[in-house]
């Protein structure tokens, strides 16, 4: 049975990766907005923002990557919604395959496609002044945090894709998530924010994730931030997974 799960998930992954690579426009839409923010903050706002660091591109990179992932996962909801509408979801479920592979195919595809956008954005970052001398372990830690963040949000996207009634609705859940980095330490230090805003900013998941990645790239001690970041991701992942499974069971007997 395990081999079936792997075979079936592999086939499903191959299928939806083709969906990603054949709709180049989705890759462009996913990366163009974060790249626009990157350029906007680097060349327009950046000069006026006091962060206490000499390289503002380094400062804003982690937040831009999180925005990219938050908007990228909405396509997972969109693709899943289309599968449900088109009837191919039911076809798969009436076949002698491992049923979990249908969702896992989408989830793994989300990891692959978001990894592609993250790499593209890092390359653009390097071109406009992002610099790090982080070693392989720090890079692996950054990749791990981003993968956890993607996985957690992807399961949120699965809930949305399974329960939405229109394709616009399937993607709409990601708008607030895309906005979260703006009320965090992603672009400006939280110290300048008024009390309640600052309290929110410092205690929401994006800040700890941004601080961890920034510290890893700057080869600074990450302190507790990385554990808070991973805790947030694991917590969101677990809750979203449970809700996604409940939504899934409502869809299928």
């Amino acid at each position: 049975m395990t081999t079936h799960v792997l075979n079936d998930t592999g086939v499903m992954l191959g299928r939806s990766v083709r969906h990603v690579t054949r709709s180049v426009d989705t890759i462009i839409t996913v990366t163009i907005m974060p790249i626009a923010f990157l350029l906007l903050f680097r060349y327009v706002f950046g000069g006026a923002i006091q962060t206490g660091t000499d390289n503002y591109t380094n400062y804003l990179m982690p937040g831009v990557l999180l925005i990219a992932i938050a908007s990228g996962i909405s396509y997972t909801a969109f693709r899943l919604f289309n599968d449900l509408q088109g009837g191919i979801f039911e076809r798969f479920h009436s076949m002698p395959i491992s049923r979990s592979s249908v969702l896992w195919g989408h989830v793994l595809t989300s990891l692959v496609s978001n990894a592609i956008s993250v790499v593209v954005i890092i390359l653009v970052g390097l071109a406009i002044g992002f610099r790090t001398s982080a070693g392989i372990l720090a890079w692996l830690a950054v990749a791990g945090i981003l993968a956890m963040f993607t996985l957690a949000l992807t399961w949120v996207a699965v809930i949305s894709g399974l329960s939405a009634s229109t394709s616009d609705g399937a993607a709409a859940f990601s708008y607030p998530i895309v906005f979260l980095p703006f009320i965090s330490s992603a672009f400006v230090p939280t110290e300048t924010m008024p009390g309640p805003v600052r309290a929110f900013a410092e205690n929401q998941p994006v800040t700890s994730i941004v601080n961890s990645i920034r510290a890893l790239w700057d080869q600074q001690p990450v302190g507790n931030d990385i554990w808070i970041a991973l805790g947030w991701c694991a917590g969101i992942l677990l809750v979203a997974y449970l809700f996604a499974m409940a939504a899934y069971r409502r869809k299928i007997a």
Binding site: R15, R18, H19, R22, S23, G86, G87, I88, E90, R91
Partner: peptide
């Protein structure tokens, strides 16, 4: 099924 359950892409 009632709607052609094929992958369009």
């Amino acid at each position: 099924g009632q709607f052609a359950a094929v992958d369009e892409i």
